[in-house]
Simulated assay, not measured.
Amino acid sequence: MSLIGKHILSSDLFDRDQLEELFELADVLAPVARGRQVTRVLEGAVMASLFFEASTRTRLSCETAFLRLGGGVTSSTGAEIMSISKGESLADTSRVVTGYCDLVVMRHPEVSAVHEFAAATNIPVVNCGNGAGEHPTQALLDMFTLHREFARIGLPMDGRRIALVGDLRHGRTVHSLIKLLSRYEGLTIVCVAPDSLGMPVELMELAENRGHRVEQSDQPRTGLKGADVIYTTRLQTERFADKPVPYSDDFRIDKALFSEVGGPDTVIMHPLPRDGRPGSNDLATDLNGDPRLAVFRQTDAGIPMRMALFASVLGVADAVADSLRPATWYRPEYTGPEDAPFYKNAR
């Protein structure tokens, strides 16, 4: 199925063939994302960036991706500065914005809002986070990261053991990710969370119905052992209607725990932001510099992956390869002193 003109509201939209086509295009666009090549395939196109909820990586990554493709961006952030604060409906806002741009990326704290917005417009709408629902573009870049990580160490994606750990009830990134993981074959997906923060049952059943083994554990020291990938998330305190259920110290993914459960090629991922405050029990900073920590390879993957998605949705994917030309400005060889040696060399 072609993605041209489609709303990207859920990871349900993608099958394995589409994922791999997007990965191939993202690989072609990686030099553009890094500022080493230039393309203008979306010259004249305009993207509206509507973020009713706070965002750093997703908003900047989406806007940068569209700009790198040669398009323009108009943006509005924070519900308090939009006309919705004056009582305007989402449908009215959607109909107005349709006349201003060619594609909308949107984040909203309510699960149904992006669907309501998309129903009122005839231009593509890309869901960049709808409450505790989904985050399909994050899942795409996570899968692109996994595609690269396993290719680097010479392992297939099929048959791997993937541990999802943290607030799996409210974490929209893992909701979208488990749907994409289930498009592969023979996985063991281990959901590691306190009982009250477990993965929604319907998502575990979806993975099981597609032939995967799904395990549950509330003990990270046992649930994470033998994992090829540890994907951890922070406590989504903004999603709690009442007092949050705290993590125990066992849910702190740090050097001490990883030395017990990790293998030489175990990949550690996190959608960020990670909560670095005392007592947060999130992904610890003492793993910075460990080459198995892929969180910044994830963030770097966001721009080429979103470029590939936007080019596909707006129907210019086939024009990308012939449009590339060298950039003329200075770019460093790598981004930071703690990047893994193999990653520095790849850049």
Rank of each mutant, 00 (worst) to 15 (best):
R213M: 14
L13D: 09
G159S: 06
S176V: 06
T173A: 10
I123L: 12
R169F: 03
H270A: 14
P124S: 09
L283C: 11
V229P: 05
P220L: 05
D195A: 15
E134Y: 02
D322Q: 15
G35N: 09
G99S: 12
L25V: 05
A301Y: 00
L25S: 06
I268Q: 00
N122E: 13
L50I: 13
R213D: 12
T137L: 04
A207S: 13
L141D: 05
Q219Y: 11
G289V: 11
T299G: 12
S176W: 04
I123S: 08
R169S: 06
G302D: 01
D167W: 03
L206Q: 13
G87Q: 09
G87S: 09
A207H: 12
L90Y: 05
V201L: 12
D249N: 14
M305S: 12
V111W: 00
T74I: 15
S11E: 02
G166P: 00
G131T: 03
D27A: 14
F117D: 08
D322C: 01
H175K: 09
R252T: 11
Y184N: 03
E88G: 08
A120C: 13
R161T: 15
L140G: 11
S11L: 02
V96C: 11
C62R: 00
S76V: 15
A45G: 05
A113N: 06
T137V: 12
S248M: 06
T74A: 14
S55A: 12
G166H: 03
D322P: 00
Y184M: 07
F117P: 08
D265S: 14
R57Y: 10
S259E: 15
M82L: 15
P278S: 00
Q298T: 01
G154A: 07
A319I: 00
F23H: 10
T74V: 15
I153H: 09
S259T: 15
V190A: 15
R16T: 04
P124Q: 03
F150W: 14
G159K: 07
S217V: 07
V245Q: 11
V126H: 02
I303D: 01
G336C: 03
V41D: 12
R40W: 03
L29F: 06
T222S: 14
H270N: 13
P244C: 10
T299E: 11
Q216A: 13
L22I: 14
T237V: 14
E63T: 05
T222R: 13
D142F: 04
D282N: 09
A26Y: 09
L181T: 04
Q219H: 14
G223C: 09
